[in-house]
Design a binder for these strands. Structure first.
Lengths: 226, 226
DNA sequence: GCAAAAGTGTTCAATGTACACCCATGC
DNA sequence: GCATGGGTGTACATTGAACACTTTTGC
């Protein structure tokens, strides 16, 4: 099937959040080519004819940042005809939260990227295209999701303390939470398994470690910290 | 810019709900052409290069069903490579609720449609492509939205009774609600304006009429009937 | 012994839920 | 006068929000 007219192009873009040094961060790559050469953008790329959108998002993320094995949730499709300066590019945006330890950021040779880096969400550099808008939308959606299901578990190691969990909520929601209410809510929600292990004192009193109950991670209904 | 290879095609599909004869219904059109000639599908069509996705959805809906002047909310983008039998077609789905009175369904001559009709959501005919899945997803999303904001107002005339409002909630959620709790919740939510008008007796006791307070329609937070 | 983070309960307000009878009208 | 749908209030349980002190450890 030949197509001799100008056509739509379809890309996927990924908004990957993490927490580093007590800051909420998002992963950006620096463009190697025009348009917007040298500008920061979200990791993204063209969808192949034979792959699903989800697969495209995973592949592109792997090529441009070396991140893999994660759950990407579809966020929104941005299709303003003017969002790309020279072509009609419609992009399906995805988002995810991950732990940034034990990840080695890197990129394939042909990935049109010259740099990969975490940037504070509240302190973004100038971004190409409409990627600032996409990130803001992703932050909004992440907060909404957090009220219903404990997606913050994706940010934490398997075993974590309640203080670490609370900290991740506070950074995402950009507000402080009451320690006693936070713990009461989580402990009564039956989502955590209390372990008989403790942090090996980074000085100060050791804290008890918990794990998420895998079964309840995605099935939990009800509000969390509106 | 010429493109000599097979390409992605981009469509929009719209899932339009209404209530008719105490049933939740969705609008379907019958296809005039292959593939799936003669099958029912959602009203949908190709996105033009110069229009936004939202505009494309509005235009296509107008062409294929004559419905206009409504708010379409983006639902999800479906991009499985096998969802269309002969091409790679990615579709951005939209949904809306409308009142079906005072609408004259019809379609443009070149709209590739031979029929437009409301169908019960729980009693769908065989559908082309993955449109059954899209409708199911739209129903799920509509229910989630209803818990937060009173989108049912789009189904009702400007002036309505509390019983009509409750009925629309019950049909969307597919469950019965307590009359006193329903009324208490809505009246205390400060979303309705109580009018000094009553239904002119379709027999039985006249019912008071209400209007939505325009200001609060989309700003209201909090759960509605989980 | 003191600095630092961990851990712990109660009270009050608001919201959700269950539930049954009287009212106004048309016929 | 009776059948039909309209309209109303209370008691109880659950949830959310505010709030301060004791415990354990490393140094």
């Amino acid at each position: 099937m030949f197509n001799l007219t100008k056509t739509h192009e379809i890309t996927v873009d990924t908004v990957i959040f993490t927490i580093q040094k007590d800051k909420l961060k998002v992963l950006l790559v620096k463009r190697a080519n025009e348009p917007f050469k040298g500008k920061w953008t979200l990791p993204g790329g063209y969808v192949k004819l034979s792959e699903t959108l989800d697969d495209a998002a995973l592949r592109v993320l792997k090529e441009k940042t070396n991140i893999q094995n994660l759950y990407l949730e579809q966020l929104y499709t941005f299709g303003n005809p003017l969002r790309h300066p020279s072509a009609r590019v419609i992009t399906v945006a995805y988002f995810a939260l991950i732990r940034s330890d034990d990840i080695n950021l890197s990129f394939d040779k042909n990935s049109e990227v010259t740099q990969v880096e975490w940037h504070g969400v509240y302190n973004l550099p100038p971004l190409a295209f409409d990627h600032k808008e996409i990130i803001e939308y992703a932050v909004k959606r992440m907060r909404e999701r957090l009220e219903f299901c404990p997606i913050a578990y994706q940010l934490l190691p398997q075993k974590f303390t309640l203080t670490e969990l609370q900290k991740s909520y506070e950074l995402i929601l950009a507000q402080n939470l009451d320690k006693r209410n936070f713990r009461k809510k989580f402990l009564s929600a039956d989502m955590l398994k209390e372990l008989d292990e403790y942090t090996k004192s980074g000085s100060k009193r050791p804290a008890r470690l918990y794990e998420f109950n895998k079964i309840t991670i995605n099935s939990k209904r009800g509000h969390f910290f509106s």
